[in-house]
C-alpha cells in the first residue's frame, strides 16, 4: 500500500486550504464587484480597483485557488465513480494541463486589465 502522502493527502489538504482562502477572498470579491460600483457596470467602474496592485494580487490569488479547487473537486467526483487506474492518471494529467493553461490565460487577462486600467488612469 502506498503511503498517504502519495495517495491523496496533498490534494485533500490543498482542497481545504484553497476552500478557506476562497471563502474569505470571494466575500471580498463579491463586496468589491457588487457594492463598490454603480450600475450599469462598465470597465470605467472597475478601473480604479484594478489599477491598485493589492486588488490585482487578490484577484490573482483567487484565480489560482478557484481553478485548483474547481478542477480538483471535479476530479474527486470523477474518482468516486472508481475509474480504471490508467484512466484515473490520464484524466488527472489532463485536468492538470487544463488548470495550468487556464491559470496562465487568466494571469494574461488580469495583466491586461491592469495595463488598460493604468492606461486610462494616465489619460485622465
Amino acid at each position: 500500500m502506498r503511503p498517504a502522502y502519495r495517495e491523496g493527502l496533498w490534494p485533500w489538504l490543498f482542497q481545504r486550504v484553497t476552500a478557506v482562502i476562497l471563502a474569505v477572498g470571494l466575500l471580498l470579491h463579491f463586496v468589491a464587484v457588487h457594492f463598490m460600483v454603480k450600475r450599469p457596470l462598465s470597465f470605467d467602474q472597475i478601473r480604479e480597483r484594478l489599477a491598485t496592485p493589492t486588488w490585482a494580487i487578490i484577484d490573482g490569488i483567487l484565480l489560482v485557488c478557484a481553478v485548483y479547487h474547481g478542477l480538483n473537486g471535479v476530479l474527486g467526483i470523477y474518482q468516486d465513480f472508481n475509474p480504471r487506474p490508467g484512466m484515473r492518471r490520464f484524466v488527472g494529467a489532463l485536468f492538470g494541463v487544463v488548470g495550468l493553461l487556464t491559470v496562465a490565460s487568466g494571469i494574461y487577462v488580469l495583466a491586461h486589465h491592469v495595463q488598460a486600467a493604468q492606461y486610462l488612469a494616465l489619460r485622465k
Binding site: L63, A66, V67, G70, L71, G73, V74, I77, T102, S105, G106, V109
Partner: peptide, 12 residues
C-alpha cells in the same frame, strides 16, 4: 461544485 467549476471557466 460542478456548476461553480463550469462558471469559473466561463467567468475567466
Amino acid at each position: 461544485g460542478i456548476a461553480l467549476a463550469v462558471y469559473v471557466f466561463a467567468h475567466i
